[in-house]
Write a protein that binds this DNA or RNA. Sequence first.
DNA 1: GTATCTGCAAAACATTTGCAATTCT
DNA 2: AGAATTGCAAATGTTTTGCAGATAC
Lengths: 141, 141
Amino acid sequence: MLIIASKGNIAEHLLEHGIKPSYPRIRILEYLVTKRNHPTVEEIFSNLAKEIPTLSKTTVYNTLNLLTEANIVRVVTIEENETRYDADVTTHGHFKCCRCGSIYDFGIDEEALKSDDLRNFRIDEMDVYYRGVCKKCLENI
Amino acid sequence: MLIIASKGNIAEHLLEHGIKPSYPRIRILEYLVTKRNHPTVEEIFSNLAKEIPTLSKTTVYNTLNLLTEANIVRVVTIEENETRYDADVTTHGHFKCCRCGSIYDFGIDEEALKSDDLRNFRIDEMDVYYRGVCKKCLENI
DNA sequence: GTATCTGCAAAACATTTGCAATTCT
DNA sequence: AGAATTGCAAATGTTTTGCAGATAC
C-alpha cells in the first residue's frame, strides 16, 4: 500500500531519488500513483495532454525511463506490443483478463517462487504474468 | 523433456496440429527443437538463411505466429525489444543473466504460484521471468 | 487448376535520438 | 548566463500487411 497522495509528496518522492520535480514529471508520476490501472504511454499522454496542452510524448517517454531507472515505477510487459507502467514497486504479480482487458495485481510468495534450479543464482527482478479470465467475466457468461 | 528428434517427427508434429509441413516450417520448428536457447527471429533467420538462401524473414514471422497459435511453441518476452521463442511448452520459468545474456529454464511449482488473490479466476497462461546473475558469472568475478 | 505458401516491398507502430527552443535558478 | 528540460521532427527497429509469383495436391 502506498501512502503518496498529494503533489507535495510526489515532488518529495522525486527529490528523494535525485530527480528534479519539474511540472511534467510531477504530473506523470501523480497519474501513475493515482490511477493504478497500469497505463500505457498512450494512455498517460492522451489523458494528461487534455490538461497540459504543451506536453509531448517524448517527455512522457523520457520521464518514464527516468522513473524506471530510479526504481520509482516498474515496467509491466504483460502485452507484447506495448509497455505498461506501475507505481507499485513492491513484489507482486500481474494477471490480465483476456475478456475484459483488466490487469489485476496479486500477491506472490517470493520464497515459494525460488526454484531449486536457480540455487546459487542471484535474482534481482521477478516478473510474474498470468493470463486468463477474471472472476467477474466468468460470472457474466 | 521433449522426444522429438528426427525431421519425420517434426513433420508429424506439425500435421498433428493441422499445419502443413512445408520445408521452411519443418526447418524452423526443427531449429527451435534442436537449439534450445530461446532464439530471436533474427537468430533463426540468419542461421537458416545460410542453408536456405531463398528464406525470407516474413516466412519466419509467419511460421512462428502459426506455431504459437497452434501451441507448438511458446513466446518468451523476457526482453522488451525483441521476442524469443521456445519449443518447450510445458510450464516452466525463464531466468536471464544480465551479465552473460544466457536464458535458463527453471522448474516452477504451479500450485505454489496460485495466489489466493486469484481465487475463482481462470488462469490459462503463466509467464515467469526472473533477471539477475547466473551461477557461472557469479563464480567468474 | 485451385488453394495454399512464400517473399519482396511497403506500411505500421512503439520507442529513441538529434537538436533547437524553452525554462529554471 | 549556464545547465537542465522540453518538444518537434526524423530515425530506428521490430513486426505486419498487400500482393504477385511460386509451389503443392
